Computed example of a mutant assay.
Amino acid sequence: MPRIALGLEYDGSAFAGWQSQPHARGVQSVVEKAIALVADHPVGVVAAGRTDAGVHAAIQVVHFDSPSVRSQRSWVLGTNANLPRYVSALWAAEVPDSFHARFGAMSRSYRYFILNRQVRPALRAGNVTWIREPLDHERMHVAAQQLIGQHDFSSFRAAECQSRSAIRRLQDIQVRRQGELLCIDVTANAFLHHMVRNIAGTLIAVGRGDQPIEWVGKVLEARDRKVGGITAPPDGLYLAGIQYEGTLNLSSTAGELLGFPCPVRRDQV
């Protein structure tokens, strides 16, 4: 049975997360329903990553199997015709049956946006996190470098995280500023529940001057969530890149987000 990969983007503020849920709307549910109408049969999709409630995706990669013969254009246009305005299919391509959107991903990249000004946002409300107090992004960047490498990230995982291991390999983290907009880019082989939001909350404490730069390393070494910073809101968080091996020529990076050039490697699946 042919396997189709589909690239998606969505505004997570309208959903209770990616995963289908019995009593709340997940992005997965509306995507499966839309594809099923094009395929003319029930469809289940597998995603590269499960985003939490309120978290957005500039690029999400899913795969599904279907015997229905459709052109790539038909998969995209037909799916979009049946999706709510908060979700959009970007591209579709037939891939080998060995391709797996989740287990084939070598790394994932997230981007966290902070609007750092005294007045709350109106146009970007729900799509950035607003911090009123001045943040020193250079201090935050220096502090963040202590997280690079393979570590036990227990201090940055949610209490309800179901992963059997807290060991993750964080490959790159950058903190930059463009005017009043501050951006945290994180790339790792995989992420724990709330890991990026907990990293952001810890770095915000450093940026405010509430904690010294060295505190981030001490939080990491403690392996105790209670010693870290707050869990930052989901509003500013985006799944921004997924890296795969191979040369299937499917775009898996988000390009620019909110005016920021994306530093994520432009690997192709």
Rank of each mutant, 00 (worst) to 15 (best):
190 A>P: 12
56 H>V: 00
143 A>D: 09
148 I>N: 11
108 R>V: 14
53 A>L: 00
16 A>G: 06
215 W>F: 12
71 S>C: 07
90 L>V: 14
257 L>I: 14
246 G>V: 03
197 R>S: 11
261 P>E: 14
187 T>A: 13
46 V>G: 05
51 T>W: 05
92 A>F: 12
161 C>K: 01
32 E>S: 02
96 P>H: 03
158 A>K: 00
156 F>G: 07
184 I>D: 04
246 G>F: 06
222 A>R: 06
51 T>Q: 01
208 R>I: 09
54 G>F: 00
96 P>E: 06
41 H>W: 04
78 G>H: 04
174 Q>M: 08
49 G>F: 14
179 G>E: 06
149 G>Y: 11
147 L>F: 11
67 P>Y: 01
258 L>F: 10
109 S>R: 14
195 M>H: 10
10 Y>A: 10
243 Q>L: 15
60 Q>M: 09
201 G>A: 08
230 I>R: 00
154 S>C: 11
27 V>D: 09
69 V>P: 00
181 L>S: 02
21 Q>A: 02
144 A>I: 15
269 V>I: 03
86 Y>G: 00
224 D>V: 03
101 A>D: 10
70 R>A: 01
158 A>L: 00
48 A>Y: 04
91 W>D: 07
245 E>P: 08
150 Q>D: 11
237 L>V: 03
89 A>W: 14
255 G>D: 03
45 V>H: 00
222 A>S: 12
52 D>P: 08
155 S>D: 03
266 R>I: 06
129 T>G: 11
112 Y>N: 02
77 L>Q: 12
191 F>H: 11
87 V>I: 13
217 G>S: 13
54 G>S: 01
